[in-house]
Design a protein around this nucleic acid. Structure first.
Lengths: 338, 338
DNA sequence: CTGAAAGCGCTTACAG
DNA sequence: CTGAAAGCGCTTACAG
């Protein structure tokens, strides 16, 4: 069925070794043989077998990518960026959606290792992730993208989430808000934890109201954005502004506020996080903190390539924090000033 | 570095053949040997090498999936559905985003073939796609999902797009609209062509206004939704309703109308297609035609599995049209009636 | 510059 | 029930 180098060799009247050398542009092959091989390749429509090649080379030129939720546009953008960047370097990406489930993550890690990927990029990890830690400790090539691992020797490319949160809260405070609610993400994720720290820091620094019930625990999914908002607005003294730790929840928060008949930003100001593309829609106009998603993906790939280049580690881990940026739209109230 | 069956065999004191038999739950192995092998596997943390296995078996248990645009939530949902369904059958999916570019499609087809995937699911194909046709004619296992190929012997799972468009246009007509604009997709795509046919059929059947300038050519991306709407509203006699052939463009159409100071649905009614999740947001409220995305993905996988099961084709191609469903929200004007 | 041969890590007739 | 051996399709020292 499939053509092999053996057939090509026969057709070209050379040995398999020579075919292989031509295919891999090995320098010392006579021009004559070189062109005969290429002719045969074309004539037979030869397609190299990556499996066999990977077997012989002991590397697959393939990376695994673990994302927690492909349905979240934030992650489809990250994934796209990683896939595109990988392709520039002829690196294939196997994309796996862990659905935020640790057991899925474990399943996919095993799977990727069995596929003998050259390394794994995690966008799905929690601060303390035993499986991921095991890999890092075993010197298996891993890069953490967006979410980082607590483990110091693990390399990551992340946003400066603490700073992002600070931008958001300071902005709200600057607009006169003293009582700012916060809907957080799962505490075991670095992104959620860092953003919460940023929020708290500004609340303290600026002497904003700091009742503990102003912070509600979310889960980075739609549902919690809704119920969290309801909970905040049910407070005896509800906040005048809400900062939501990701856009998906902020979108739901917006709906919760609408359902209550509250106007945004007049009654409650709202700020999200991530800058997924729909937030810029005129009907939405959500003020949010943008992350350099594309850069994050690119750097994750570049860092992985660097890691794979040095034979056996020895190199220092890379810890990169990308600059976040506040995108001011209508939902915070500042947009109206213009 | 990596443990092989050889090591496991040695550890268990049996031959590689026996290890292989145990690993693949081959029936005739003594209980004794069986447990020794499993013990060794655990002790050594053996991970089978899929590459070698695929080489020997001449199948990879992997499918390629080509989507035209991962950034469109419609396709990330399709992809998720296919990946999830694949996993239930231990089929791995390599997801490739062709970015709607034929040359990318060609690149990925080659790539997937080199990876020796067992088959390819196309969600990215145009009606006349030479590369895809070549594969189908060569009896290479292909399933077309959502977009179909003109070629009769190709199997596809698609929505009944003609019917979907008819539902939308009839609904608008039922609300009293006689002059309905239509923003189409690229003519070479089955989805676009079928929807256009549906639109035309209803326009004719109901004797609606049928000026040719009521139909503008779009490209299934945001930009064209915007400019197409502008073009329609610039008409000497603009339409009172616009049907847009996908939600991404409809979202942009919404913005274009807002920019013009036109109210939806009071001044212009709007209907989209796809029912991507954001259209249900309270701030958006876009009436749209829902496709059975999840079912489409599942069936694509199931059909592929059936195709792979029968040795050499001979079986008839599968042509499945899934039922679309009109989701009525605010943008068409009917929502207000309640 | 070139070819024969071994090896990558599995699976599976074949013979016992 | 079990093992030795060949084969899947490449690559690469090794020897010429």
């Amino acid at each position: 069925m499939n053509i092999t180098t053996k057939e090509v060799a026969k057709e070209a009247g050379v040995s398999q070794s020579t075919v292989s050398r031509v295919l891999n542009s090995y320098p010392y092959v006579s021009e004559d043989n070189r062109s005969r091989v290429w002719d045969a390749v074309e004539k037979l429509r030869y397609q190299p077998n990556h499996l066999a090649r990977s077997m012989a080379l002991q590397k697959t030129n393939t990376l695994g990518l673990l994302v927690p939720d492909l349905m979240n546009p934030f992650y489809s953008e990250i994934a796209k960026s990683i896939i595109d960047r990988g392709q520039e370097f002829k690196l294939n990406i196997i994309l796996c959606d862990t659905d935020n489930k640790p057991e899925m993550q474990k399943f996919y890690i095993d799977f990727l290792q069995q596929k003998r990927v050259d390394g794994i990029i995690f966008a799905s990890v929690s601060l303390r992730d035993p499986e991921a830690e095991r890999l890092v400790n075993a010197e298996y090539p891993c890069i953490f993208c967006n979410r980082r691992l607590k483990l110091k020797k693990a390399s990551f490319i992340s946003s400066d989430n603490q700073k992002g949160a600070k931008l958001a809260v300071r902005h709200l405070a600057g607009l006169g808000h003293r009582r700012i609610g916060y809907i957080s993400g799962p505490d075991e994720l670095s992104t959620a934890r860092d953003r919460l720290m940023g929020y708290r820091e500004v609340v303290e620094a600026l002497g904003l109201e700091a009742d503990s019930e102003l912070v509600v625990q979310g889960r980075f999914d739609r549902g919690l954005g809704y119920s969290g908002t309801m909970k905040l607005m049910d407070l005896p003294k509800p906040p005048t502004a809400i900062f939501v730790s990701n856009d998906l929840m902020a979108l739901a928060a917006m709906e919760a506020l609408m359902e209550r008949g509250l106007r945004i930003p007049e009654d409650v100001a709202l700020v999200g996080y991530d800058d997924i593309s729909i937030t810029g829609h005129k009907r939405i106009g959500l003020t949010t903190v943008a992350q350099q998603k594309d850069m994050m993906g690119r750097l994750a790939v570049d860092t992985m390539i660097a890691m794979l280049a040095k034979e056996n580690g020895g190199t220092k881990p890379v810890h990169t924090y990308l600059e976040p940026k506040l995108i001011i739209r209508d939902s915070c109230g500042a947009g109206k000033l213009k």
